[in-house]
Design a protein around this nucleic acid. Sequence first.
DNA 1: GGCTTATCGTTGCCCTAAGCAACGATCACG
DNA 2: CGTGATCGTTGCTTAGGGCAACGATAAGCC
Lengths: 170, 170
Amino acid sequence: MAGQAQYEELVRQLSAVGAVRRDLARIMPPDCPAGSGAVLTILDVHGDMHMSKLAEHLAVDLSVTSRQVAHLVARGWIERLPDPVDKRSRILHLTPAGLDRLDDLFRRTTQLLAERLSDWSDDEVGQLIHLMSRLRESFGDCRPHPGRVHAPADTPVIEETTRTPANAHT
Amino acid sequence: MAGQAQYEELVRQLSAVGAVRRDLARIMPPDCPAGSGAVLTILDVHGDMHMSKLAEHLAVDLSVTSRQVAHLVARGWIERLPDPVDKRSRILHLTPAGLDRLDDLFRRTTQLLAERLSDWSDDEVGQLIHLMSRLRESFGDCRPHPGRVHAPADTPVIEETTRTPANAHT
DNA sequence: GGCTTATCGTTGCCCTAAGCAACGATCACG
DNA sequence: CGTGATCGTTGCTTAGGGCAACGATAAGCC
């Protein structure tokens, strides 16, 4: 149990971190409106998935995800394949072009971060990632989020199958 | 110097943390549109200050700060005192009513955080705060960016859906 | 088989946050 | 005392995000 005084500070820092995110968004190419990078990254890391699963990863509304995906599809970076077992669903798949774009985005963020975080140790970055990740988990089911994590045994789980994690770039 | 692979993950977590912030904003009273809490807290912690200083703390544009402050002034939670040594400036001062409101906000966030972070140790929260704070510091002088300066990346839009965002070239 | 209900994704509409630019007012300095 | 810099406010614009309604499909039930 953490001290209450900390919570105040935590909330403030949470807001401040938004500025960092905006800074990162600023160096993105104009046709990559922010969230795009997150979408591509998630598809790259976790492989093909459905809209609902992606929305869950992004922790935003399905409508938002839908628009982001439409944007990316229009540019040929991901494709919406029909799901053979459920014609309502669409399977999101990262295209080679999308991987290229992701590479570009990755290069941009890496450049900026390497510059800004030059005096951070590997361990510190890792800790920050870990703690933020944990924070998000702790807030997981805070609201009526679409797509309860129910994975029926007979449903072919698409996650992490079609495409292997692919840490191709580095 | 941190490993590059981490940067990708860091960016993603940075986005995800936005969801936590939104969750926190959701439990605020309707007349406290998000940033208000941050403003009140900063004034409470750091004492009276000028607009520019506040904007710096919030890491947002002066115009944004100005509107937030106007909102809070209208509700009597802070006041804009004239600066005796510079008639252009205005000194922001937290009123007793503002302190009350801050107390309320504080109670709300504390309640939610205590609930969500019940299994966090005092030390972990402290570390997260410290690391986020440090992150922000590392990004300190990123502000005066005149918008999209880089943009060699443009991709032809492929029509697939009925909607055509197509803001590719402007 | 048909009927009803639940689920998946898309879209329309709205709100808020944030930035840029222009402006009025004031300082600072020649 | 005029010229330029600085502080803050306001108008305009954009992007991100949510809610609700909808069409299409799946799953249950009679």
